[in-house]
């Protein structure tokens, strides 16, 4: 039997949807028995959410005041202390998982497969390299313990309706004092989360200023969409770093992605190519983004975006009548 331990990502109150996607990835392993570890100061709420995910057998609560913030140097030894019972340890390929999982792998002296996009069998996985321009199938040694991060855009979230057992565990681990949490400046929470939103609108350098991003937010409000940005727009200071979509930012897979004033560098395209429908709005008809867009509109974004907003608001008003 494949014994899988998934490290839950959460904010202390809510389980991050990335964890439910790891569950789906884990269910692709043959005969998988899935356990989720929740490290928190008080894991009650998050453990209950994890226990409700379909396909999860067991949830472990690792409660410790030191776990109030997800510091890899503190979490890793606790996970390692539990690792003997598992063949596969998985976390999401988010900044949480990318920070934590390699630290766990090194302490276990085992390999990590990053950004798993498909599970072939217990030892074969597919993952993107070169910004998604080459997909490699990797083979891990049979019987060796394996750590992996899951490319969340490649998997649907596991459904609910599960009833896993929840148990508290106290791993025998010495926690270092060399790493201390200071502060987190979180993005505004009044908008859908970029990584789990079903609709995303992103802006590029052509927006011209942070001020001009306002028109994207207005359209996003009409559509209930999250707002993202190209690297160029983030580097130029038009948008916050946590909005960056692409190879070195967030990899997303919304139902609808609208790229506005984004030319479509390969590094950006790798972050969006799992979107169900891609729309590109750009004044340059030769922009590479049109090569992968389902719908392209060549024109001035400063005219088109407000008009889109009016049309979307108008059609909603009609429906309300």
């Amino acid at each position: 039997m494949t014994q899988v331990l998934i490290i839950a990502e959460h904010d202390g109150a809510k389980l991050n949807p990335a964890t439910a996607k790891c569950v789906t990835c884990a269910r692709g392993l043959p005969d998988a028995n899935i356990t989720i570890a929740v490290c928190a100061a008080d894991a009650t709420a998050v453990a209950a959410q994890a226990a409700a995910l379909a396909g999860v057998a067991r949830v472990l609560k690792l409660e410790n005041p030191a776990n109030a913030q997800p510091l890899a140097a503190l979490l890793a030894p606790q996970i390692v202390a539990l690792a003997a019972d598992y063949t596969h340890l998985l976390g999401p390929s988010t900044t949480f998982g990318k920070d934590l999982m390699p630290r766990i792998a090194a302490l276990l002296d085992c390999a990590q497969v990053s950004n798993i996009m498909a599970v072939v069998d217990a030892t074969h996985f597919r993952r993107p390299t070169y910004a998604g321009n080459a997909i490699v199938t990797v083979e891990c040694a049979p019987g060796a313990k394996l750590v992996g991060t899951v490319r969340t855009a490649s998997f649907e979230a596991a459904g609910g309706g599960g009833a896993a057992t929840v148990q508290a565990v106290t791993p025998a681990a010495t926690l270092p004092a060399h790493t201390r949490f200071v502060a987190r400046a979180a993005a505004k929470a009044d908008r859908p989360d970029l990584q789990s939103a079903t609709r995303v609108i992103s802006g590029g350098r052509a927006l011209g200023s942070a001020e001009n991003f306002k028109i994207l937010y207005e359209l996003a409000d009409e559509l209930g969409a999250a707002v993202g940005a190209s690297r160029a727009a983030v580097d130029a200071g038009f948008a916050a770093n946590d909005m960056q979509v692409g190879q070195t930012g967030k990899i997303i897979a919304p139902e609808l992605y609208i790229a506005i004033g984004i030319s479509g560098a390969i590094q950006h395209l790798t972050g969006i190519k799992d979107a169900r429908t891609i729309v590109a709005i750009n004044k340059d008809a030769e922009a590479p983004i049109f090569e992968i867009a389902d719908f392209g509109l060549v024109g001035d974004l400063f005219q088109i975006v407000p008009e889109l907003k009016r049309l979307v608001a108008g059609s909603r008003a009609l429906k309300a009548d």
Binding site: H124, I135, V138, I278, E291, I292, A293
Partner: peptide
């Protein structure tokens, strides 16, 4: 520990339409 078995080009999205 991780053998790179085979590299493949990613599946391409179909080019859509201009509106």
């Amino acid at each position: 520990q991780v053998k790179l078995v085979r590299f493949e080009a990613p599946s391409q999205r179909q080019k859509g339409v201009l509106v």
